[in-house]
Design a protein around this nucleic acid. Structure first.
Length: 470
DNA sequence: TGAAATGTTGGGGCG
DNA sequence: ACGCCCCAACATTTC
């Protein structure tokens, strides 16, 4: 083989099926150098839970991949240069990403390599539609979900997903690679990772299993059960999607042959819509989409933030959610809306503090979904929930965790309370508390804020912000 | 993919 | 028999 090799740069697309860059690399027939780079110059490094997931996802990819996966740490531009120099590679391929600093780095690298005569190709792999492909009639991007998704489904051409290539030639010489263990992605002291492992199977095989299991049952009752954190009502595909272990196109195709998948597909649509917003608003994770929120009087209360993070707010449904996040690296979507609303509206803490915490704790942390969803709850985003939509932290539990199974699972110190008081222990008579072994303020906190007062405070702050604005 | 306040309706108890 | 009141149930409005 006299061909110059081709470099296949893996990022958050850790799969071999429906991977356009990988298929392209295979189709050239050239020797393939597959590399994953832990980029030291990323604006927003992965959070701890995502690093944990990444360890297993890379392990899984190395297993699936017919060629060695080179691991390197540093600036991508330097590492690619070095590989090119060492191997004579004349062609580089990757799948696109959409966060601002990633685009910037890719653009610089692409033009530098092109100038030096290399062939560089990038592909659409991780979205159904590119953010610039879905436009309104007046040629602007969509800012409201429903018309966006209607248009997006029209734009999307459901070609069959790409199969894993049959033949991949490995580059013949050994190349220096880091050892995954040396990256120390898994937590130690304490090792909180091993308690999360039972909940998950990172990697493409785990992703396909999750999809199959979901489409074989839960999807039929998804419209209602997706709101029930006490049930297995959701797909749990989010971390697999976040790391590109499965493509949205594969999901689309699998849904085509199953009844009643529209509601589920529209959640995939929310992911697409979030990328649409992120691409057109690169600072979505740090700047209010609606600038009138710049004047909002956020509080700075570290103790309140820490109690929210630790699941010690005294509102059982909120605390269950925050502890689910801490224990499993994931939080049910219905509960995310409630815990986020609580941070923003009851505690009046800046939504960015919540965004940061979720980024660090979620195995499915996604630059687009996380930012767009926090702004949605705050009311500062595009097509956002109106500010006055304030979730009631106990009635949400009573409505969506009817038997209290979810709260009892994650807040076991309340498990012996009757359902009537499970979500509002502060209303329980003394003898009921005593019988359940609950001492408010000792075994479980008193409410960090009074619901009614906090609600009125938030509404007043909102009103004032609006008044100042005009 | 809200919650709370306010308004309306109608059945039933009761003098 | 009738009017009055209460209040649950539902609808509408407001934040």
């Amino acid at each position: 083989m006299t061909d110059n090799p081709i470099i296949l740069w893996f990022r958050r697309d850790l799969r071999i099926t429906d991977n356009p860059a990988l298929s392209r690399a295979a189709d050239t027939g050239k020797p393939i150098i597959a590399v994953f780079i832990d980029e030291s110059d990323a604006d927003k490094p992965l959070g701890a839970a995502s690093l944990w997931w990444l360890h297993y996802s890379l392990t899984s990819l190395m297993n699936d991949l017919d060629v060695p996966l080179i691991l390197r740490r540093g600036q991508a531009a330097d590492i690619l240069d070095e590989l090119i120099q060492d191997t004579g590679a004349d062609h580089v391929v990757w799948n696109r990403r959409y966060e601002k600093d990633g685009i910037e780095r890719d653009t610089v690298i692409k033009s530098a390599l092109t100038d030096r005569g290399l062939k560089v190709e990038s592909f659409k792999a991780n979205l159904l539609n590119e953010p610039w492909e879905v436009k309104t009639k007046s040629d602007t991007y969509y800012k409201v979900f429903t018309p966006y998704w209607r248009a997006a489904r029209e734009v999307f051409t459901p070609d069959a997903p790409l199969s894993a290539p049959k033949n991949m030639n490995a580059y013949a010489d050994d190349l220096r690679t880091d050892k995954l263990e040396d990256w120390k992605l898994l937590p130690t002291r304490p090792d909180w990772g091993s308690k999360m492992l039972p909940y998950w199977t990172p990697g493409s095989e785990g992703a396909r299993e999750a999809l199959t299991e979901f489409l074989n049952g839960p999807v039929q009752t998804y419209t209602n059960d997706r709101n029930r954190p006490d049930k297995k009502g959701t797909s749990k595909l989010s971390p697999h999607l976040a790391f590109g272990e499965i493509s949205p196109r594969e999901i689309w195709q699998a849904c085509e042959s199953v009844e009643q998948t529209d509601k589920f597909m529209s959640e995939i649509g929310w992911r697409e819509f979030s990328y649409n917003l992120l691409y057109h608003n690169p600072n979505l994770a740090t700047e209010n989409f609606r600038s009138d929120f710049d004047a909002f009087p956020w509080k700075k209360d570290n103790e309140a933030l820490e109690r929210w993070q630790a699941g010690q707010t005294g509102y059982p449904f909120v605390d269950a959610g925050m502890r689910e996040l801490w224990q499993t690296g994931w939080q049910h979507n219905r509960v995310r809306m409630v815990t986020a609303s609580f941070l923003i509206k009851h505690l009046m803490l800046d939504w960015r503090r919540g965004e940061e915490w979720f980024w660090d704790c979620l195995v499915d942390a996604d630059p687009a979904s996380n930012a767009a969803s926090w702004q949605w709850v705050a009311g500062s985003g595009a097509d956002a929930a109106p500010y006055f939509r304030i979730f009631n932290p106990f009635s949400q539990g009573e409505k969506f965790d009817k038997n209290g199974d979810y709260v009892r699972r994650y807040v076991p110190e309340l498990k012996d309370l009757p359902n009537k008081y499970l979500n509002r222990p502060w209303e329980a008579p003394e003898d009921v508390l005593e019988k359940a072994g609950v001492v408010l303020g000792q075994t479980y906190p008193k409410p960090i804020v009074d619901h009614k007062a906090a609600r009125e405070r938030a509404l007043a702050a909102y009103k004032e912000t609006r008044a100042e604005k005009k």
